[in-house]
Amino acid sequence: MAIEKARPRIVKLDMNPMVDMAFLLVTFFMLSTSFRLEEPTEVVLPPATADVPMPETSVMTIYINRQGQIFFGIDGKFSKKALLNHIGQRYQLEFTSEQVENFALLSGFGVSVAELPKLLSDKERMRVYPMKGIPVDSLSNELSDWIVYSRVVNPAIRVAVKADKGTEYKYIRRVINTLLENKILRFNLLTEKLPSKNKQ
């Protein structure tokens, strides 16, 4: 009669396939990721069925939050620096090189030009600075200047309006009128994709 010998049990789990897969996914996400930019203000986009994706480069974004405050952002480090120089000349303000560097770090801002030096002088507190929005009154429409000089910096720039879905329309109208005054007749309203109902 064969007596089964008591063998010490060594469980060897082959982990190689799992590791392979994990690294494959890591590589995929590493290559496909583009980091989420910090937004200057919180905006919940309205849903719509539009399915044209917004290009991510060469875009100026006008943010309008629920309170109707207006923020402005432009992509690209060099565009930002050039834009700030133009604005400095326009308003006769001198920005130090440090302030220009800090401006290039901001994804967007919402202060009047007069307040800009104060915002840009403190790098650490820049992101928690209480921003009240860019003035768009008929007397001093600073948004208009930002738009004009953004187009000077990059003539092929596109305009994206990123407004909260609860914003009252009168605030949106002010921005749209500003765009129209500057002969920008083509612009994009950013929306969130609604799952389309295919009834066909």
Binding site: L25, V26, F29, M30, S32, T33, S34, F35, R36, L45, A48, A50, D51, V52, P53, M54, E56, A160, K162, I176, L180, L185, R186, F187, N188, L189, L190, T191, E192, K193
Partner: peptide, 19 residues
Amino acid sequence: FMLTTTLTRPFALELIMPA
């Protein structure tokens, strides 16, 4: 990477205003 990646890209509704 899974958490930081942006999966929801915004979409655009293009408006063309009359001159």
